[in-house]
Nucleic acid binder design. Structure first.
Length: 584
DNA sequence: GAAGTCACG
DNA sequence: ACGTACGTGACTTCA
């Protein structure tokens, strides 16, 4: 063991891979460790079931894992870091994660090791199912014969090591080394820390909510069955459509889905809700049922038995634009828009009486980015003055003084401002507002006349994509758009909207990622007890140790606003409270 | 496992 | 004349 560690310490770069008993890092026990630092070669250390013995063996490897000078190569290193953390090992030194590297090389592809091996090494690795089976028959890696463990684990480490060499070349070719080294790789550690920390959930409060929701759901159910003249499954779109549009014939020409069913989607039903009480009831039922099943009843089941807290898993290689995603549970789509939904936010609370939740939101970051990138002076000026951007837009497009902009005008301007980022059409806008197609078209035309450089910028992005096959963010994160020159106008249109949207959404993602790294560094440097817990695209949430509140507020605001310099200032709004709703 | 729906930014 | 706003994840139904 000593000799092996000595050997490891002589390498500039080592790939390692953990074999464990669970995909959940908080539950996973180590079964073995594979290493490779030379193509086609590797080693496997089998670890005993006795956790104390395993810890002793690991302590012999600490010098390697904690060595700042040795690059650690791996596939999805966030997982391995989290597992090793539970054994008291903090992995140090640069991380080269092949999954992350490939995400930068081509974000729209998949990034699992078998796909990567097949694509880049022309080799299909042993599938894990051949060892542990799948579904009900699945066994633990611990029960797999040692020779099979070795073959599988060493192969993975070897392939990963080989892929790393290729990906370094590819990253350099695209000019994405810094994006990897200075952003995605450091972020992996930040995310691991946030996930291990988890957030406190008021389960008793959610259980009370569940009871009151249930009462209201049952009442709505009763009313719906009465109006329908029969009982049926309201949650079945098929049955619901047959009742509303087949049996009751509430409209003459019901909209259908692509499979020929009656559509019962929200935007279809909400048109009819005023005329038919049953439809209003169905919408209310759906809303409450969604809250109950997806959040109120599901979240308490996600509280870890190990920590008593909720630990999401941030996916760093899923969203094609560079955003994170969150799952098991998804903490990036907790309700906030409706009154009933807001109640759920109250269940996210500080870790104890000595802490408060702090929420820090970028204000209008995507609009600021499009203003800066397009160099649209009218919009830039509005942001520099700290104006209400939607009101300022309304004043321009409706040609009225700022102070006489009506609520309705502001609301329409807001819809267009958001729509622009997505590449809205007159049809889309008229669907989102009470405006007709013609009114929508006029509004969009006036919008571009008011902000002429915006339109020029959007065209330039499409042209760039046509010529280069990709678009990029402020930090050079690429998204390839293979359909940008397609003959099919629908397919091409979608690619053109992506050409505009991806750099905007992706640049916002770049900026908050830089901010997260800066904030974490500041928290570490200043040796604070405050923890960063959540990221929701343009928002960060913290468990703040009360005595640190003023220091942390200043630090977070400054780190976020200065994460990246645009020709438009970035603005961060802070909120503090006894729960996530209050912190908004 | 696909389809439909709906929660968020 | 065409179809129609970007990016996600989770739940339920149903074949």
């Amino acid at each position: 063991m000593k000799l092996f560690t000595q050997k490891l310490l002589q390498q500039p770069q080592v790939c390692f891979d953990t074999e464990t008993t669970s995909l959940d890092p908080l539950e996973a026990n180590l079964v073995g460790l594979a290493f490779s630092w030379e193509a086609h070669k590797g080693f496997y250390i089998s670890l005993p079931e006795d956790q104390e013995e395993t810890s002793e063996i690991l302590s012999e490897l600490k010098a390697f894992f904690q060595h700042e000078g040795i690059e650690k190569v791996g596939q999805n290193l966030k997982y391995d870091l989290k597992v090793l953390h539970r054994y008291g090992i903090e992995v140090k030194g640069p991380c080269f994660d092949t999954m992350l590297a490939h995400y930068l090389i081509n974000p729209d592809m998949r990034h699992n090791l078998s796909v990567l091996s097949e694509t880049y090494l022309n080799y299909t690795p042993i599938a894990i199912e051949t060892l542990i089976g799948k579904g009900k028959q699945k066994i633990s890696m611990r029960e797999v014969a040692l020779d099979q463990q070795v073959a599988y684990a060493v192969e993975d480490a070897d392939l990963c090591f080989q892929l790393a060499q290729q990906f370094k070349t590819e990253l350099a070719a695209a000019g994405n080394e810094s994006l990897f080294v200075d952003m995605e790789a450091p972020l992996l550690r930040v995310l691991a820390g946030m996930e291990l920390e988890g957030i406190n959930l008021d389960v008793a409060f959610l259980n009370e909510l569940s009871v009151t929701l249930d009462k209201d759901i049952l009442q709505l159910e009763k009313d719906i069955y009465e109006a329908a003249g029969e009982t049926f499954n309201i949650a079945s779109p098929k049955q619901l459509g047959d009742i509303l549009f087949g049996k009751m014939q509430l409209v003459e020409k019901p909209k259908k889905t692509k499979t020929g069913q009656y559509s019962t989607a929200e935007d279809v039903l909400s048109y009819l809700a005023k005329e038919h009480k049953i439809i209003a009831d169905v919408l209310a039922y759906r809303g409450l049922a969604k809250l109950k099943s997806t959040y109120v009843d599901a979240l308490p089941l996600q509280v870890s038995a190990q920590t008593g807290r909720v630990h999401t898993d941030y996916m760093q290689t899923v969203a094609a634009t560079g955003r994170l995603s969150s799952n098991n549970p998804n903490l990036q789509n907790i309700p906030i828009r409706t009154e009933r939904g807001k109640q759920i936010r109250k269940a996210f609370i500080p870790r104890d009486q000595e802490h408060l939740l702090l929420a820090a939101d970028y204000s209008q970051i995507e609009l600021r980015i499009i203003a800066a990138l397009s160099e649209e002076d009218n919009m830039i000026a509005a942001f520099k003055e700290g104006a209400d951007i939607h009101a300022a837009t309304a004043a321009k497009v409706f040609n009225v003084p700022l102070e006489s902009v009506s609520r309705e005008q502001r609301s329409h301007a807001k819809t267009v401002n958001f729509g622009i980022i997505y590449g809205v059409s007159a049809f889309g806008l008229s669907n989102q507002t009470d405006l007709s197609r013609a009114e929508s078209k006029a509004l969009i035309d006036t919008y571009y006349e008011s902000y002429p450089k915006l339109k020029a910028y959007m065209n330039s992005q499409v042209n760039f994509a046509r010529e280069n096959g990709y678009v990029e963010t402020v930090l050079g994160r690429r998204r390839y758009l293979k359909d940008i020159n397609a003959n099919n106008a629908i397919v091409r249109g979608a690619a053109e909207r992506n050409a505009v949207n991806a750099p905007i959404q992706g640049s916002a993602a770049d900026i908050i990622k830089l901010a997260m790294i800066a904030v974490q560094k500041a928290l570490d440097d200043q040796k604070l007890r405050t923890k960063m817990l959540l990221q929701v695209h343009d928002e960060l949430v913290f468990d703040v140790y009360k005595p640190e509140l003023e220091q942390v507020k200043a630090l977070v605001k400054s780190a976020m606003e200065n994460a990246f310099t645009l020709t438009v200032p970035l603005d961060v709004e802070l909120g503090v409270g006894e729960n996530w709703l209050e912190a908004h």
